[in-house]
C-alpha cells in the first residue's frame, strides 16, 4: 500500500482530482459501451416476440373466419 490513510489515497498529494476523474469517466464510457448492445438485444427480443405473437393471432383469426 502506497498511502498512509484513506484520505491520502483520495487526494493523492494534490493529483487526486485528475486521477479520479480519469478513472471515473473511463468507467462511465466503458460501461455505456457494454450496456448499449445488451439493452438493444433486450428490446429486440421484446419487440420481435410481440410481432411473432401478433402474427400467430392473426393466423388463427383468419383460419377462424375461413372455417365459418
Amino acid at each position: 500500500m502506497q498511502f498512509d490513510s484513506f484520505s491520502d489515497f483520495l487526494t493523492m498529494g494534490g493529483h487526486g482530482v485528475y486521477v479520479w476523474t480519469v478513472y471515473g469517466i473511463a468507467l462511465l464510457v466503458l460501461s455505456a459501451l457494454v450496456i448499449t448492445p445488451l439493452r438493444r438485444d433486450r428490446r429486440f427480443f421484446v419487440e420481435q416476440s410481440m410481432l411473432l405473437r401478433r402474427d400467430r393471432t392473426v393466423d388463427r383469426k383468419t383460419t377462424d373466419i375461413d372455417s365459418e
Binding site: 493523492m12 498529494g13 493529483h15 480519469v22
Partner: peptide, 11 residues
C-alpha cells in the same frame, strides 16, 4: 510526476 502518473494505467 508524483501520483498523476497513475493515469498511465488508463491512458
Amino acid at each position: 510526476q508524483g501520483n498523476s502518473y497513475r493515469i498511465i494505467y488508463i491512458h
